[in-house]
Design a protein around this nucleic acid. Structure first.
Length: 480
RNA sequence: CGGGGCGUAGCGCAGUCUGGUUAGCGCACCUGCUUUGGGAGCAGGGGGUCGAAGGUUCGAAUCCUUUCGCCCCGACCA
């Protein structure tokens, strides 16, 4: 048992922080609410980025970069947007030793600057669609921060697209939601429920927001990514107009969608255990580490290590450059080296000592299950790959089973409160309420509507709260 | 912004109430020896002026005033 990690059952949020610390993912910065993403955390982010970036490009998007600073007046052009974001904006009032004529806002999101630029770039229906993404940092001065889940500054990706028709924009919104789902599930091993946000949970300025909701191992919900259908709100605010085929001047239809470093928090709270971090193999910067073991230095240097290097080279060809490392820190005792990699979440440990060498084998130890078994040198590359696939599949399956075991259906508010208190987790219920009812439920229970799942889009029933017929199926939960 | 906790060595803390020798302890770190397949043992060693400013006093980590910051819990949010 790890001696530097608070057990999850004892104090979940302390456990979370301990895991981050032990794995050296991040550290507190000198500025309140800000974090330093350390190499272990950043390389994980790079892996996540890589998968999403590929998918964005595969769906026809291109990357660009817009500035960090936004004129204050831009924020004010869209009423809901300013209302939603103004309270959490950091504002630059001085520069170059002088007070600025107009304060500059550090972007909390870039719809406004991008809208401004799109209005210059879009003239004709031939200029559409515009499909741009940017990887950047944003700043939201939240009252309360939590490493990776909510920091004043965070890294993310924001896609911003403009289209000629409403249908096409809606199609884009849902397409990107699906891209998110696919990568979260297949690469990050995060089972998510995709759905539509309720009125009260929408992005400020959007007509409609769609989300990927995941369940953490404390049974709370985490919004892992969102895709917004912005209608013509920003097009009207920023005058993004184009002349149609028919020669009529029309407003464009826009979308925006984002995932952030919060996904690292999701990975931690979905897969890790009391020994520390567990990284799904497909996003693990280091997928396996080979440890030459033994007290005999001449054998280490002369036999085990060369064999380990040779195996690493073969594996790197199959799994991708730098995905397998050889740990040659012989000044550390084996147990210390085991724990080192255990806490950093390396999916697979490969041991090569005297016992293995004499049998021309290596020992594999899975991070997810602790299971260990030997495999011969000639079979090792194949088996390592298979095992990594198996770990990936197991992490996903485990998380999904957990979510399903902790999802309950209710038909009345009394039942809702009872289930929430006694069991927690996700609650499925037909719901026909609006903003007012959402708020009342939240005040009474702290649970919120996470989404109306898309795969239940056509089911209808009697609202558990208002009793109205024809209500949509919703998922409620306490959320991060 | 409300509630709670806390700033003393890299980290975690004791010492503060009841001012008084060179400010301690554990982990980490450095050196050596012995160990080495799930967090080693012994020996030696380096490192802090006690968040900051002001005050009281012969004397302040300790008392007083002011101030800055951080963490946790809540309301707000990716």
């Amino acid at each position: 048992m790890a001696k530097n990690i608070t057990p999850r059952e004892e104090d979940y949020s302390q456990w979370y922080l301990d895991v981050i610390k032990a794995a050296e993912l991040a550290d507190y910065a000198p500025v309140r609410g800000c974090m330093v993403i350390r190499p272990n955390g950043y390389s994980l982010w790079e892996m996540i980025q890589k998968h999403f970036d590929e998918a964005f490009k595969d769906t026809g998007h291109v990357n660009a970069y817009f500035p960090l600073l936004i004129p204050n007046s831009f924020l004010e052009k869209e009423a809901d947007h300013v209302e939603g974001f103004a309270p959490e904006c950091a504002v630059v009032t001085h520069a170059g030793g002088e007070e600025l004529e107009e304060p500059l806002v550090v972007r909390p999101t870039s719809e406004t600057v991008i809208g401004h630029m799109y209005s210059k770039w879009v003239q004709s229906w031939r200029d559409l669609p515009v499909l741009i993404n940017q990887w950047c940092n944003v700043m939201r001065w939240e009252k309360r921060s939590r490493l990776f889940l909510r920091t004043s500054e965070f890294l993310w990706q924001e896609g911003h697209t403009a289209h000629a028709t409403k249908e096409e924009a809606m199609e884009e919104t849902l397409k990107m939601l699906e891209v998110y789902r696919k990568i979260m599930e297949e690469m990050l091993a995060l089972p998510v429920i995709t759905g539509e946000k309720s009125e009260g949970e929408r992005f400020p300025g959007a007509d409609n927001t769609f989300t990927c909701e995941a369940m953490m191992t404390d049974k709370k919900a985490l919004q892992a990514g969102t895709s917004h259908f912005l209608g013509q709100n920003f097009a009207k605010a920023f005058d993004i107009t184009f002349q149609s085929r028919e020669g009529v001047l029309e407003y464009a239809w826009t979308t925006s969608w984002g995932v952030s470093t919060r996904l690292i928090g999701a990975i931690i709270m979905t897969h890790s255990d009391n020994d520390g971090l567990i990284i799904p193999p497909y996003v693990a910067p280091v997928k396996a580490v080979i440890l030459p073991l033994g007290a005999d230095e001449s054998k280490l240097a002369g036999l085990y290590e060369p064999k380990a290097q040779e195996l690493a080279a073969t594996l790197n060809e199959i799994l991708g450059k730098r995905s397998v490392k050889v740990d040659t820190r012989y000044h550390m005792r084996p147990a210390d080296r085991f724990f080192y990699h255990l806490q950093r979440g390396i999916p697979l440990r490969i041991e090569l000592g005297e016992k293995e060498y004499s049998k021309e084998s290596v020992r594999l130890v899975r991070r997810d299950t602790g299971e260990r078994f030997d495999v011969s040198w000639d079979k090792a590359p194949e088996v390592v790959k298979e095992t990594l696939d198996a770990i990936q599949a197991n992490l996903y399956r485990r998380a999904k089973d957990f979510r399903e075991a902790n999802t309950h259906y209710v038909e009345s508010f009394d039942e809702f409160k009872k289930v929430l208190e006694e069991k927690g987790g996700f609650i499925k219920a037909y719901f026909a309420g609006g903003k007012e009812e959402e708020r009342a439920i939240k005040e009474a229970t702290t649970a919120t509507v996470r989404c109306f799942p898309l795969d239940e889009e056509h089911t209808r029933g009697k609202c558990f709260y208002t009793g109205k017929e024809g209500a949509r199926l919703a998922i409620f939960a306490k959320a991060y």
